[in-house]
Simulated scan of single mutants.
Amino acid sequence: MKTPALALAATSVVLSAFTMPAVAAQDARFMRALDRLDPKTRLEQICDLEAMRKMSASGSAKSRVDRAKSDVITPPQHLGNTLVAKGGAYRAGGKWYQMSFTCKATPDHKSVLDFTYKTGAEIPAAKWASYGLWK
């Protein structure tokens, strides 16, 4: 069983990778950090990264997406290797917006096989703190 400190350190490494270009998913450090996470958290992290990549590449976001979280407004549903996030959020241009997605990953939760998403309304800055969001 992992200690809380180890889990926190591994999560910090993964989250810090989100500030790097999408190429970070291929980075060996990123993959080692994923290995240190429990499968449920690993699925959330790889799907959040995929959300950032897809939205930035498609131009559907207001500008480049630099953060994505599947668990902002409501917790995501874990259905085996699939994550269904109906209450997520992403940050682009210094603002947070609602999003939902369905993400299917490989059994080891290290690669995404299928990903569909919808973007939503801007989240008012007055609600950021209650959702655990930041500037």
Rank of each mutant, 00 (worst) to 15 (best):
P107R: 08
A17L: 06
Y97G: 08
Y97Q: 06
Y117C: 05
D114P: 00
A5M: 10
P76E: 09
G59M: 09
A33P: 03
S63D: 14
V84T: 12
A121E: 14
P21H: 05
D66Y: 06
D108L: 12
T106D: 15
T119E: 10
M20W: 11
L113T: 14
M55Y: 01
V14I: 12
M52Q: 14
E50A: 15
K86L: 13
T116C: 00
T102W: 00
A51N: 07
S130L: 09
I123R: 04
V23F: 05
R67S: 10
V14M: 06
M20C: 08
A51D: 07
A17R: 06
P39N: 10
H78I: 15
D27M: 09
L79W: 03
A7K: 05
A105K: 07
R91W: 00
K69M: 15
G94I: 09
K135P: 13
Q77K: 15
K118F: 02
K127C: 01
P4S: 10
K86E: 12
P21C: 03
T11S: 14
V13K: 14
K40Y: 06
F115K: 05
L113I: 13
G87I: 10
A28I: 12
F30S: 04
R64W: 04
L6G: 01
T3M: 08
I73Y: 05
I73P: 00
D66C: 03
G120S: 05
L49M: 14
R64F: 05
K69Q: 13
G88W: 06
E122F: 00
A7F: 01
